[in-house]
Amino acid sequence: MPDPVLETRGLTIRFGGHVAVDHVSCAFMPGELTAIVGPNGAGKTTYFNIISGQLPASEGNVLLRGEDITRLPASERTRRGIGRAFQLTNLFPALSVFENVRLAVQAKAGRGMRFLSMASAHRSLAARAEAVLEEVRLTRLAGQPVSALSHGDQRKLEVALLIALEPSVFMFDEPTAGMSVDEAPVVLDLIARLKAEGGHTILLVEHKLSVIRSLADRIIVLHNGALAADGPPAEVMASAVVQEAYLGQELADV
């Protein structure tokens, strides 16, 4: 069995007396797509935030390829290959769509500290940014400021930034939330394609069970911050814990 790419050991965060993530230990394998499910407030996004470095762990460790990254700042984790798309769209509003992606490409290339060359002279970065925009079907909006985009297009751009980073771990936090029925497939196809490419470790917080069924290799269930179930989709979905955790919420709308 190969070594896990990403691993959390006893990962815990407390806000005052409230334990939002409670000793979650989990290993994520290369090429595996793991869906993370659980009711609202179960700690899914918080778990993501500790892994990608937006929140400091109170206890436990995050390991990337066996290396402890628990104390590293978010930017350094991204540089090492943890890529994150956010649930609430989190972009650079006054900058153009193209510039948003170009910034992510530039970050990946590690060229941010160039003071005396012109940004536009780095043609390979621009070309890569254009290719990423093409992938998410946003080419026609490249020149628009983000603030002029529809919600669905902003979600696509959110995913584009993640793809531009070329991470080894992709973390999607409800990538299709609030998207229309016509728009969601663009993002889901992208995730499916990433999975098909193989080798990427993908973590996906998602509510729609149809999506989970078609994409996930494995499901983990968080309930009140703790790991409630972990296994192949069919097994987890059938388990009593999940039925209880969801209390018929999402399972009902299959």
């Binding site: 990608s52 937006q54 700042p73 978010a74 930017s75 350094e76 991204t78 540089r79 994150r84 956010f86 989190n90 972009l91 650079f92 509003p93 006054a94 900058l95 910034l103 992510a104 970050a107 990946k108 941010g112 930034l161 980073l165």
Partner: peptide, 13 residues
């Protein structure tokens, strides 16, 4: 524009 996201895409703000 967004220091949180700048950090998240890999720039040490």
């Amino acid at each position: 524009e967004n220091d949180f996201r700048a950090e998240a895409i890999g720039y040490p703000v």
